[in-house]
Computed example of a mutant assay.
Amino acid sequence: MTLKTLSPAEVKVLKDRGAVIVDIREPDEFAREHIPGAKNAPLSKAGGAVATHEGEVVVYHCKSGMRTQANAARLASIAKCEAYILEGGLDGWKKAGLPVAVDASQPIDIMRQVQISAGSLVVIGVILGAGLHPAFYALSAFVGIGLVTAGVTGFCGMARFLALMPWNRRSAA
């Protein structure tokens, strides 16, 4: 079974009629910005499952639609009611000019923090390696190995470390 994709305008109509909007992103992503009234059911924790009743309609979404599409079969199997996918995810919703709840006091999501940190460390390693001593190239190599390991295993030590930082503790609630 697969889930049909609906445009943001179609989802807005369903939402206005009482459809349950389910955001499958991580809690830190949801805390920063989400569709008003959406429920957060991260794939990593709840598997996207929400309590539904017969006759309800559920619309799943993520940031761009890619995570939702990649997990469509899984989401379809847990949906106990009529279910759809929001085309383009939250980005598509915003592009359509529909309302989004934004809390700028929340930190940016962990994966963006990892990208910023890893990219910065690679650049610093290259600059120091070229300018001071070639041994500093090892910093860039170390970060590269960490990223490859994270991609292969699904465990990102840098994300775990960044999650412990004081600015990220607020969104964990």
Rank of each mutant, 00 (worst) to 15 (best):
Y84P: 02
Y84C: 04
Y84W: 10
I85Q: 10
I85L: 14
L86T: 00
E87S: 13
E87A: 14
E87I: 08
G88Y: 00
G88I: 01
G88S: 05
G89N: 04
L90P: 03
D91K: 15
D91H: 13
D91A: 15
G92M: 02
W93C: 02
W93M: 07
W93T: 06
K94C: 09
K95V: 09
A96N: 08
A96F: 04
L98K: 01
L98M: 02
L98T: 04
P99N: 00
P99R: 03
V100I: 14
A101M: 11
V102F: 10
V102R: 13
A104H: 12
A104I: 11
A104V: 12
S105T: 15
Q106M: 15
Q106E: 08
P107K: 04
P107G: 03
P107E: 06
I108F: 14
D109M: 11
I110H: 10
I110R: 13
M111H: 09
M111S: 08
R112N: 04
R112T: 03
Q113K: 10
Q113I: 08
V114K: 01
V114C: 06
Q115H: 11
Q115G: 03
I116F: 07
I116L: 13
I116Q: 12
S117N: 09
S117Q: 06
A118V: 13
G119L: 09
G119Y: 08
L121Q: 08
L121H: 03
L121K: 04
V122N: 06
V122S: 05
V123M: 14
I124Y: 10
I124K: 09
G125V: 05
G125D: 02
G125Q: 08
G125C: 07
V126K: 04
V126G: 09
V126I: 15
I127L: 15
I127D: 09
L128G: 06
G129Y: 02
G129V: 01
G131Q: 13
L132F: 14
L132W: 14
L132G: 09
L132K: 13
L132V: 14
H133I: 04
H133D: 15
P134Y: 12
A135H: 11
A135F: 12
A135L: 13
F136R: 05
F136M: 02
F136Y: 13
Y137K: 01
Y137R: 01
Y137M: 05
L139M: 10
L139C: 02
L139I: 14
L139D: 00
S140F: 05
S140M: 04
S140D: 04
A141T: 01
A141S: 06
F142L: 13
F142H: 03
F142R: 08
G144H: 00
G144W: 00
G144D: 02
I145C: 08
